[in-house]
Amino acid sequence: MKKDNIQNLGFLVLFLCIVITLFFLGTIIFFVVVRGAKVISLSFLFEAPRRAMTEGGVAPAIIGTFYLTLGAIIFALPLGVACAIYLCEYSPKSFVVNIIRMSINNLAGVPSVVFGLFGLAVFVKFFNFGVSILSGSLTLGILVLPSIISASQEALLAVPRSIREASLSLGASSWQTIKKIVIPTALPGILTGVILSIGRIAGETAPIMFTAATFYIKKYPSSIFSEVMVLPYHIYALMTEGTHPDKQTAIAYGCALILLILVLFVSALAIVIRQRQRSYHHA
């Protein structure tokens, strides 16, 4: 009897935690959707802002976010996966490698504004890429590199030793084994890492503030050296600058909703890909 009560109490507490979490999540989504939906229309999606951001759409910011996210993934995915492969499959288990591992994990904890400053110093100034899609993408790429590396590492380590041995025993080289067995098997896990990082990149503001974003630009980006508008930074601009706070706040919610949908869409896509892989890999 007593044991049962304790158990029930435990379940209740856990259940309440879920309820609280869901409540906050629900409220956030509810507010963003309700307020954002009011301003969203075709012209909001496909037009540039007008009249000091109080009218028109946010198309340049959507495009900017898309380019930056894409650029960061193009840069960080191969690099991150390659690092993970080296760390898991090739590197000797030495003191130095352990230090490298630890550094990568610590990198994940560095505040994102620090990455912004780094990007400014290195990409914008030192390499002279200027405030541009390139600088912003590289900065965001470095920001997500640790999470891509650790997700990939986990996925690689989860590939059973037994199938690696099977591959080697058939006369495959270790490179063939990695390419044909280990990476394909680890791919669903690696994709999970990418899903999470896409969400993070698309919403980041601090790292691109000094490296890629601009408050307001009329032209659409023409090359990787163009400055861009980006959704999260546009929200920030709408809420801090300008002369019509109420109009601007409404537009900011619209941007937030688009950002939410964008991230959701990408995640859904990646989850579908992952599920397909998985249904094949695990009977």
Binding site: S162, A166, L168, S169, Y280
Partner: peptide
């Protein structure tokens, strides 16, 4: 090594088919 492993095949204790 690769040539040797081709000549000397191995079947393991636990079945270990590839996820293919």
């Amino acid at each position: 090594v690769v040539a040797i492993r081709r000549l000397v095949g191995m079947v393991f204790q636990k079945p270990n088919p590839f996820p293919k």
